[in-house]
Design a protein around this nucleic acid. Structure first.
Length: 577
RNA sequence: UCCCCGGUUGUGUAAUGGUAGCACAGCAGACUCUGGAUCUGCUUGUGGGGGUUCGAAUCCUCCCUGGGGAACCA
């Protein structure tokens, strides 16, 4: 892995979260002699920050105990899976610094082995071929209820009439299932456990179904496919996985996980569950994200508003910021909703340290310096990163006609406003102190078209020789030297904290924040930005962190606002209104 | 309320029978050539009742409350 990425540190005094405690104990009492985990994505969508949490836990738990971690694609549903997803997941995983490059595995490579284990279970008399239809299986199981949320009891199910078939017949039928003798859905292989079990997943779960669907890796080699509950524990066992870490939704499946391990007499992998990640104002579910993509509400899986790793990368997130975030949220079993502001905080903190500063104006307003010598241009020295002395300085051209931020001028200043207004002085960052002498206004529209000022030549670089205090410092770009750019400003994808909690009858997809993307097509930046490459991050001073987008071309620059700067003025403004 | 799992400041997470801490958010201030960064201070919490104990967030019990489960998905 990339050594610069620290493992997320538990913030407790014990030094361990509950998973690491369990692993530590397992090692100490000899339950396992080593540690091996696995990342089990299904290649049916792109990786998001919720998967990154799971991946990070798997990877770093193994690493912390000197173990290994496999990246195993859980690809047993040919209807939804695709190689493009495999590639996307691998790219994003490795980009995060989770380096399983030499341990990329596929459950589909175990089909033959899994088949053999199924045969073993049939021979032991704990698996049988069932002729019931899917509807009948539900009915027999006793779970075919109209309203799952409003039941008062779960009566025992009934045994399938085919449950007591002989071993030989089961063996024969299962072989014929594989050879394609039966129609899709005509029969299944089921585990013979207990149709009266209070845990519904233990009521003779289906192990194999018949499905004639081309698999993206095995093609037409198989027409029967194993189910998750059967495949997953045995794949873990095949790989010698000691700790199979997964989200809480599988907790209820653990007895079944253990049942298959025990009955198949394979390596005793252990499943431990933790709470999945939820973040406010977004959705973390491949199904919902797919819907956003398919309905065209975002530009794709890598839309910078998406909580996918690809989207976050394009937005300007760094692996370090993501790992920092994942370390801070911790690991627990409580269902939680993490404030998206924590994620943004982690990005700010990381980018503050590393991003070069640059002067750019998003909503330009002309500033005319009336006493500036006509035609004169000065190269002023600007600090690249005040947080990093090694970053050095650069020259920025200054002239008598500048672009400044429209917000940085007020005809009538609100209380506590200390930027430009008639009669007031401000410092132009790294430039001169100027005093506002007036402004031009379009008589028709009332729009301010230019601000006028005079400069003090003795304040070059921004320092006043008389040490007078100037409260405001604003950013600027020389109009004659400005390079144009497009800026994409993002806001929360959803206004609602929990987008999926919508009133009945409302389609959550319609609640996407209409202001989540604002395109500013006529912004200007200092010349140094012209050479930015895709993925480069900068701080546009006083505005926020911006990342050069993959749509950017020389002469047609596009920047994404990764996150804004903390904005104290916005808070003051908000309080005043 | 059929089965399973949870409930610690606004949010997330520690404290493993012995001082309820940390981070984010919020508030107030200092400093500042980014209303950035940095620094200082502050507010707010063990869901409720009973029990065990010298002592309970922690153990027991009842209640309340949140999530999950019943696919030939994973």
């Amino acid at each position: 892995m990339t050594e610069s990425i620290p493992a997320p540190g538990p913030n407790g005094a014990s030094g361990f979260d509950f998973i690491r405690e369990a692993v530590d104990l397992d090692l100490k009492n000899g339950r396992y002699a080593y540690v091996r985990t696995r990342l089990p994505p299904e290649p049916n969508g792109w990786m998001h920050i919720g998967h990154a949490k799971a991946f990070s836990i798997d990877y770093f738990v193994a690493k912390d105990f000197g173990g290994t971690c496999n990246l195993r694609f859980d690809d047993t549903n040919p209807e939804k899976e695709d190689m493009s997803y495999v590639e996307a997941i691998k790219r994003d995983t490795f980009w995060l610094g989770i380096d399983c490059r030499d341990r990329v595995l596929f459950a589909s490579d175990y089909y033959e082995k899994l088949y053999e284990l199924a045969v073993l279970l049939i021979k032991k008399g704990v698996a049988y071929v069932d002729d019931l239809s899917d509807q009948e299986i539900r009915e027999y199981r006793g779970t075919d209820v109209p309203d799952k949320n409003n039941i008062t009891s779960t009566p025992p199910g009934r045994n399938s009439p085919w449950r007591e078939r002989g071993v030989e017949e089961n063996l024969d039928l299962f072989a014929r299932m594989r050879s394609g003798e039966f129609a899709d859905g005509a029969r299944t292989l089921r585990a013979k456990i207990d149709m009266a079990h209070p845990n519904l997943v233990m009521r003779d779960p289906v192990m194999y179904r018949i499905r004639r669907e081309k698999h993206y890796r095995t093609g037409d080699a198989w027409c029967i496919y194993p189910m998750y509950d059967f495949q997953h524990p045995l794949s873990d066992a095949i790989e010698g996985v000691t700790h199979s870490l997964c989200s809480l939704e599988y907790e209820i499946h653990r007895p079944l996980y253990e049942w298959f391990i025990r009955e198949a007499e394979v390596f005793p992998s252990r499943q431990i569950e933790f709470a999945r990640l939820n973040i406010s104002h977004t959705v973390l579910s491949k199904r919902w994200l797919l819907r956003l993509v398919q309905d065209g509400l975002v530009s794709g899986w890598d839309d910078p508003r998406m909580p996918t790793i690809a989207g976050m990368r394009r937005r300007g997130y760094t692996p370090e910021a993501i790992h920092d975030f994942l370390g801070r949220i911790g690991i627990a079993k409580t269902d939680s909703l993490v404030d998206i502001q924590l994620l943004e905080h982690c990005l700010r903190e990381d980018l503050n340290r590393r991003a070069s500063r640059v002067l750019a104006v998003l909503r330009p307003l002309r500033l005319i310096i009336e006493n500036w010598p006509a035609g004169q241009v000065e190269d002023l020295e600007a600090v690249n990163n005040p947080e990093d002395a090694q970053a050095g300085t650069r020259k920025v051209p200054f002239s008598g006609e500048l672009w400044i931020e429209r917000d940085d001028f007020a005809e009538v200043p609100p209380p506590k406003y200390f930027r430009l207004f008639p009669g007031n002085s401000v410092r132009l960052r790294y430039g001169f102190i100027v005093t506002c002498t007036g402004f031009d206004k379009d008589p028709g529209s009332g729009e301010i078209t230019a601000v006028r000022c005079t400069y003090d030549p003795l304040t070059k670089g921004g320092n006043a020789p008389d040490n007078r205090k100037v409260k405001g410092t604003i950013h600027w770009v020389s109009a004659a030297h400005a390079i144009p750019l497009e800026a994409r400003l993002f806001d929360k994808l959803f206004v609602a904290e929990r987008p999926m909690d919508v009133p009945v009858g409302v389609d959550w997809v319609q609640t996407v924040n209409p202001a989540s993307l604002e395109t500013v097509s006529r912004a200007f930046a200092e010349p140094s930005l012209a050479t930015a490459a895709h993925g480069d991050s900068f701080q546009f001073e006083r505005l926020g962190y911006f990342c050069c987008d993959s749509d950017s071309r020389p002469g047609n620059l596009v920047f994404n606002r990764s996150v804004s700067l903390r904005d104290t003025w916005a808070k003051i403004e908000k309080k005043q209104s």
